[in-house]
Design a protein around this nucleic acid. Structure first.
Length: 593
RNA sequence: GGCUCCUUAGUUCAAGGGAUAGAACGAAGGUUUCCUAAACCUUAAAUCCGAGUUCGAGUCUCGGAGGGGCUACCA
């Protein structure tokens, strides 16, 4: 299968070289011709004027004539100002169409041999997943899928934050106020149950602070002296000493949380090849601190704490090891990164983490670089924007956190209601109806999140439910379902499509084929930019374009056999590419809806 | 304060330095004797302000206004 962009730029580069002796093709600018003009590809000739020593119009005309004369695939051209619009012969597009039909994994790149690890999700075990995690999970999963489609080996990993003082807080509150409540006795999902006790801790903690302050203590002291906080700290010490009772409580409650997370992950359709637990990795990195001290990259302060000075790099001094010898987040991350690169022979490591940690990752990369690890350059922080509510950031204290499980259930419920209202599920078994509602509800949610550029902050308004019309997941799913319906009918009627290449193509059909040919480039761009939104935009364009075509041209009622075959084949390929593109977003498409 | 990111129709999002800034929702109007109307078609509606670079700026540079994030011996 030929790469069309390369073909066109090669043709233009040759002509420019012969006419003006231009060797460096970087001055050549080629883009798709805008819809309002005639042609398929446009050469912007302003960059060539220095070499041509002619007006933009004359240069474009000369170049156009040269290209048409030397390239049978280019059948004509027109010039508007400094823009040379080239028209490609229809037979060229027909040939590309044949290639798409014959291609088994259309859009997927051959294996590259690169191994890329991508870390995403990274939850705390004391809080259920919320909307922010949803963006993280969907992005991580989708980017992993897109990288695979580009031929890379991808290892999806999750790093669970399962230790620390915050975990002890929920354990302690459960011990004090839980009365032995379990997911079974309460009927609550395990992660929600544990989350409830985390909130419970905070409630009692605040009350105790208030009381202490009322008795004359300063607020800062009260925060440190509150009995419940002292107890939590005691619990953490016991945990680190592997106290049996604390440890088994910790294991029990984390078990509940993991069961709960599994349900949410399954509902979102995300998964991992490997799960890391901080309880197992938090001691890593200390050897790196030693190494850094020996190399003189780090320094020790009087209180025995270890730091790195990054002021020359425009950053601050950064703590790497506390005075008491315990590690901080950065220490662990350094150690974990090293181990991952060593154990897996990684080419690249991607961290899907919110942009509030930009600084952290800047430091992480810089420290590793200063330690002499060249692979520091292969660490990429996929920094995504927050999901904001109309009133701003989500705040658990103000009860504005949008819970992941609730949101998923809402979306699926809305999809079901809407389907019932429209009578879309008449004649379906309950099982089918439920499966379709889930696909559509989740499709709406996932597309809503993924269609936005990951880097950008996005807004979610819980009062307005996510749309099912317009530029949405269900719109694209619906286009697929309608095509599948046509294909089923064609099959029932015993229509064959062997003669599809014999039919002449309408302009709209050529346009659809052109859009189909752009799919591999979209898959490539999405990977380069780590942006599922590129795929989302492509899928929407394709669906939208097909809907317009389909509205104006009958497929099954077309009398001319070859034309009918061609249209069926075209519809089938559109459905196939829609399914493929949506799968890169982690969205399933239904056979009917 | 320092560092950093953002600002595009009423709203939510697009736009590799290129032509007349695209969609969707919402608004106004229209399409079903025809393969699924979760569809299709019309209309109105936007680059925060001011300079600069360029043949050409939403995009690059500088200044201003407004908003977010970071700036912990927390993770």
């Amino acid at each position: 299968m030929i790469n069309i962009e390369e073909f066109i730029s090669g043709v233009v580069a040759n002509a420019a070289k012969e006419l003006y002796g231009i060797e460096d093709s970087s001055s050549l600018q080629i883009q798709k011709t805008r819809k309002e003009f005639e042609g398929d590809y446009t050469v912007v000739v302003f960059g060539l004027l220095r070499a041509s020593r002619k007006s933009p119009e004359a240069t474009a005309t000369e170049l156009g004539e040269k290209i048409v004369a030397s390239t049978p695939e280019i059948k004509g051209f027109n010039v508007i100002k400094g823009f040379l619009n080239l028209s490609v012969d229809t037979s060229f597009w027909a040939a590309r169409f044949g290639e798409i039909v014959a291609s088994e994994n259309y859009g997927m790149a051959p294996a590259t041999g690169r191994t890329i690890m991508i870390e995403y999700s990274s939850p705390n075990t004391n809080k259920p997943l919320h909307l922010g995690h949803i963006r993280n999970n969907l992005l991580g999963y989708s980017v992993a899928t897109i990288l695979k489609a580009n031929g890379h080996n991808v290892i999806k990993v999750n790093l669970v934050n399962d230790r620390g003082i915050h975990i002890c807080k929920s354990m302690l509150a459960w011990q004090l106020y839980g009365n032995g409540e379990t997911p079974e006795t309460s009927g609550m999902k395990g992660d929600h149950l544990v989350g409830k006790y985390y909130v419970e801790f905070d409630k009692h903690y605040k009350e105790q602070i208030k009381e202490l302050v009322a008795n004359g203590m300063s607020e800062d002291d009260a925060k440190k002296q509150a009995p419940i906080m002292l107890q939590a700290q005691e619990m953490l010490r016991k945990w680190e000493a592997k106290d049996e009772a604390v440890y088994s409580l910790w294991e029990k409650m984390n078990g509940w949380v993991y069961d709960g997370f599994d349900v949410t992950y399954k509902a979102l359709g995300v998964d991992f090849d490997k799960v890391y637990y901080e309880s197992e990795t938090y001691l890593l990195g200390k050897s790196l601190v030693e190494e850094g001290l020996q190399k003189g990259v780090f320094f020790r302060k009087e209180d025995n704490s270890v730091w790195i000075d990054l002021e020359k790099d425009g950053l601050d001094q950064k703590l790497l090891l506390r005075g008491d010898g315990t590690s901080v987040y950065m220490t662990q991350d350094l150690g974990t990164a090293l181990r991952r690169f060593e154990d897996n022979n990684l080419d690249d490591m991607i961290y899907v983490v919110g942009n509030e940690q930009n600084y952290h990752f800047q430091v992480l990369k810089l420290v590793l670089k200063k330690l002499g690890y060249a692979w520091s350059d292969n660490i990429f922080h996929l920094s995504y924007g927050m999901v904001e509510l109309p009133e701003g950031k989500m705040k658990s204290r103000e009860g504005t956190v949008v819970d992941a499980d609730d949101l998923i259930a809402d979306m699926v419920g809305t999809a079901r209601e809407m389907s019932d209202e429209l009578g879309k599920l008449d004649g379906c078994s309950e099982q089918e109806a439920a499966a379709i509602s889930e696909m559509v509800g989740l499709g709406a949610l996932k597309y809503f999140i993924l269609k936005v550029d990951p880097k950008k902050t996005m807004l979610f308004d819980p009062r307005e439910s996510i749309d099912f019309n317009g530029n949405t997941g269900p719109f694209i799913q619906y286009t697929h379902a309608r095509i599948r319906s046509i294909l089923r009918k064609a099959e029932e009627a015993g229509i064959t499509t062997g003669d599809y290449l014999d039919a002449p193509l309408l302009a709209e059909e050529v346009e659809l084929i052109k859009t189909l040919t752009e799919y591999p480039a979209s898959v490539r761009t999405a990977a380069q930019q780590f942006a599922p939104s590129v795929i989302a935009a492509y899928a929407y364009d394709l669906a939208k374009q097909f809907n317009g075509y389909y509205h104006d041209h009958s497929i099954l009622k077309e009398q001319h056999s070859a034309t009918r075959s061609m249209r069926l084949m075209l519809a089938e390929q559109v459905a196939r590419v829609i399914r493929s593109a949506m799968s890169l977003l982690g969205i399933d498409v239904p056979e009917r809806m």
